[in-house]
């Protein structure tokens, strides 16, 4: 507690990190490949879709050099489906993160190495499960609908703010019956996002209630987005830490008993409990 800075990333930092997510753009002008520190960007040729990092896509969008294709999960029907799942089907859990892609993306100069490096471990046969932040981009146009990627709120906010017309255009094109015009469609997405944020924030609060019982207290934060983590980090860590402190003496007594009973089994179980809690801390 020596530093006044809170632990973890702040909202601005998370949003900055999220700008490296790839999004799909449809360029309107030719642009040669740019040699950047992180690798070369693909060269843009007008009718062809290309995946660019969010920051570059937004820059080109502001200069009217490209249109952004919103990811499939940002479509109103996808969002409504997620909300329905979160509220009715499974009111306790967060909706799961996107499934791991079954094959590597087509090679992309500049990002190919990073993608392939991850994909070789991603093909789940070897039992390694890559979780959200270390996974390849899930915000491009071919990302699956109905699953929220790790940086969902940041990307969605950025796209809504700077490329609202593209989102409206995509949704109007997708649903021919969407009659409200372009303005209302972006508004619809915005409203659905607000609902989703509220639902998940309430879930985050009530998820701490699972820490009530002794021993079995474990919170699952699977599928929670980066911004949501940044927002709730202080609170969740505070609750977990408080529960730990309240249970510390009972836990110490229990461990002593087990050690007195002898055998590595008791000690092993005690250690297992400790690891559980430290895992929780790390996950946040």
């Amino acid at each position: 507690m020596a530093l006044p800075l809170p632990s973890g990333l702040t909202h601005a930092e998370v949003a900055f990190v999220a700008e490296m997510e790839l999004v799909t753009v449809v360029p309107r002008q030719r642009l040669e490949s740019i040699d950047l520190l992180g690798g070369k960007t693909p060269s843009l040729r007008p009718p062809h879709r290309t995946d660019l990092p969010l920051w570059l896509a937004l820059l080109l969008k502001k200069q009217r050099r490209a249109n952004i294709l919103p990811p499939a999960w940002l479509h109103p029907s996808s969002l409504a489906e997620i909300i329905r799942r979160e509220t009715r089907d499974d009111p306790d859990a967060f909706s799961p993160p996107p499934p791991i892609p079954s094959r590597a993306d087509p090679s992309r100069p500049g990002f190919a190495a990073r993608q392939q490096g991850l994909d070789s471990t991603q093909d789940g046969e070897d039992g390694i499960r890559i979780s959200a932040p270390f996974r390849g981009s899930a915000c491009t146009a071919d990302a699956p609908a109905g699953y929220l990627p790790y940086h969902w709120l940041e990307v969605a906010e950025a796209l809504l703010t700077h490329a609202g017309d593209d989102i409206a255009g995509a949704t109007a094109g997708g649903t021919t019956t969407g009659g409200g015009g372009t303005g209302s469609s972006a508004g619809e997405v915005r409203g659905l996002l607000r609902d989703l944020v509220e639902v998940r924030a309430a879930k985050m609060r009530s998820s701490t209630a699972r820490l009530e019982g002794f021993g079995g207290g474990l919170m699952s934060l699977r599928g929670v987005g980066a911004i949501e983590l940044a927002e709730s980090r202080g609170f969740v860590l505070g609750v977990v830490d408080g529960v730990r402190k309240v249970g510390a003496s009972a836990e110490a007594a229990r461990r002593e008993d087990e050690e007195e009973e002898g055998g590595g089994v008791g000690g092993g179980r005690g250690d297992g409990f400790g690891e559980e809690e430290s895992d929780e801390d790390m996950g946040i």
């Binding site: 985050m204 609060r205 701490t208 209630a209 820490l211 009530e212 002794f214 609750v239 408080g242 529960v243």
Partner: peptide, 12 residues
């Protein structure tokens, strides 16, 4: 423990 957890949700 129950008290703390129940009140924490309310606090949030």
């Amino acid at each position: 423990r129950k008290t703390f957890v129940a009140r924490a949700a309310e606090v949030a």
